[in-house]
């Protein structure tokens, strides 16, 4: 009788540890921009390695996870909040590789947790080179739409101003992403009105149109539709709605610049 109670207790402790790890793993993977299909595949792969089965419900702000042993006698359920973080494909790739490593090499849970913590301490690209890269990318974007050299130059400057401001508002001042997007779009669009006001170059309208495109939420749009296609409607609608809200903020910022400068290009 005593040994059965001890077995139950150790099974419960094992399920609890696996469930806690999988909850941390899945919320981090969702936060860094993985599709729900990829999150599910990776979590099921890890759970199988530890002789458990898992049921995963991914919502727009939370993940509900139930782990049970192979006989289905014991279960453990956790609900964990998804941390709001910027998209991180580097972490997404590393976490996917971690899931394969755990499955292929039968990595122990304690070791897997240590590897997971090591991955979380990875650094992002430094803000100055990142800002310059985004500026160059948006200037190239302007060229793709037929912009000339003055237009590319002003888009480069406008993008740097808008992106830097967004970084300060979200990272330092912890403002809402929606307010930051609206203000960044307004500033970038106002800066890019310069060719129109001073008559620089032949394509000022291209500069104005492309100056805010670094704010387009491409990843949530594509992930949201991908989630809908795999029947994860709740998470898919949540992601799509966030993308639509960001687009509305971006458009609002552009409108403010139009109204301030009284621009009519049609």
């Amino acid at each position: 009788m005593e040994s059965t109670a001890c077995d139950h207790s150790s099974t419960h402790a094992r399920l609890k540890a696996v469930c806690a790890f999988l909850a941390r793993y899945s919320t981090t993977l969702v936060a860094c921009g993985a599709t729900t299909q990829r999150v599910t595949f990776n979590v099921v792969r890890i759970a199988k390695t530890y002789d458990t089965q898992v049921v995963l419900t991914i919502l727009s702000n939370h993940v509900m996870i139930t782990v049970h042993d192979l006989n289905g006698d014991h279960t453990y359920t956790l609900t964990r909040r998804i941390r709001q973080a910027p998209i991180d494909f580097s972490l997404n790739s590393a976490l996917s590789r971690l899931s394969w490593k755990i499955a292929d090499c039968n990595v122990e849970l304690a070791h897997a947790q240590r590897m997971f913590d090591t991955l979380l301490s990875r650094h992002r690209i430094k803000i100055i080179p990142l800002t310059l890269m985004v500026g160059a990318a948006n200037a190239s974007f302007c060229r793709l739409f037929g912009g000339d050299l003055p237009a590319m130059l002003i888009v480069f400057i406008a993008t740097i101003a808008g992106f830097w401001l967004k970084h300060i508002m979200t990272s330092k001042w912890h403002w809402s992403i929606y307010a930051a997007t609206f203000i960044s779009a307004s500033v970038a669009a106002l800066v890019s009105c310069a060719p129109m006001v001073f008559g620089w170059g032949n394509t000022p309208q291209v500069a104005l149109a492309t100056s805010v495109l670094f704010l387009v939420p491409g990843v949530p749009f594509i992930n949201g539709l991908s989630d809908m296609m795999t029947a994860h409607y709740t998470c898919g609608i949540g992601r799509l709605f966030k993308a639509v809200m960001l687009t509305v903020c971006l458009t609002g910022g552009l409108m403010v610049a139009f109204l301030c400068m009284d621009i009519n290009m049609l």
Binding site: R124, M133, S140
Partner: peptide, 11 residues
């Protein structure tokens, strides 16, 4: 170039 810059935003 545009893809590299936009990729850098998503790390």
């Amino acid at each position: 170039i545009a893809a590299i810059g936009f990729g850098a935003i998503s790390n």
